[in-house]
Amino acid sequence: MLAHSLGGHIFSNFVWDQQSINMTPSCPHDPFLALETLAGLVTFGCNIPLFTFAYDTVVPIRFPGHCLRQSVREQARWLNLYAPADVLGYPLRPVPAYATVVAEDRAMPVGPWYKRHTPLCHLAYWDDRRFQKYVAHYLQHMLTACRLEPDRG
């Protein structure tokens, strides 16, 4: 799953709702719909930290999903990328409890030179070659991990 900006917060809320419906970590009737097969998440320009100030205790979504094969679970990653000049994108790991589910916060200046150091970089992730290569490498790694062990179910 790739989620940009407010999409990261919206997707997190959706996952939270689905996981609340399926409170047990065991596999529900449809693990895919319950998002218990979620193995890869890339947030970028993510503003989840802005919404955590309303809570005394911050509790992130369960990640990775509980219904993954062990080989996939071991490779599952939530990566968060943010541009240093992006006023709407922040690191997630400093938020209490997020360090347990977010594997990496990566500062990555994005956009052409004339946007890279301004708030306009918030809209430049999708077209940035470095960002594209980083995400493509991550997706290739995850797809390889998913193929390593055939499903025996």
Rank of each mutant, 00 (worst) to 15 (best):
G153V: 01
A145Y: 03
K115M: 04
C67P: 06
F51Y: 15
G153N: 05
I61L: 13
P150W: 11
K115D: 03
P91H: 08
D17Y: 02
Y90W: 11
Q75E: 12
P49R: 06
L88I: 05
Y55N: 05
M108Y: 01
L35R: 11
P64E: 15
A54S: 11
R147K: 08
M108C: 00
V59C: 09
F32S: 04
A34T: 02
R77L: 10
M142W: 15
T24K: 09
I10Y: 09
V101A: 00
S71C: 13
V110D: 08
V135F: 04
H4F: 10
C121K: 09
L81D: 01
A76P: 04
G40P: 03
P112Q: 14
A34N: 01
S20M: 08
A124Q: 15
S12L: 07
C121Y: 11
H9T: 15
P91Y: 04
I48F: 03
I21R: 03
G8D: 06
F32K: 04
D86N: 01
L50M: 14
D30V: 02
P150T: 10
L79Q: 06
R106G: 01
S26A: 01
L139P: 10
R130T: 12
V15D: 00
F44L: 09
T144I: 14
G111P: 03
V59K: 10
V135Q: 04
H141W: 14
A3H: 13
T43P: 15
R147L: 07
D86Y: 01
D127V: 13
L92Y: 07
R106Q: 04
G89M: 05
S71V: 09
Q18A: 12
Y134E: 10
N22S: 10
T24W: 11
F44Y: 15
F131P: 04
L6I: 15
A99I: 10
I61G: 05
G7L: 11
D151E: 12
R152K: 14
H141L: 10
G153F: 03
T118K: 06
A99R: 15
P31H: 11
R147T: 06
D128F: 00
L79C: 09
T24R: 06
S26D: 01
G40T: 09
A76E: 10
H9I: 13
S5I: 14
T144R: 14
V110H: 06
Q18C: 05
A85E: 08
Y138G: 00
P91C: 07
H4K: 12
V102Y: 05
N22M: 07
L139R: 15
M1A: 06
W113E: 05
H9E: 15
R93G: 07
E74N: 14
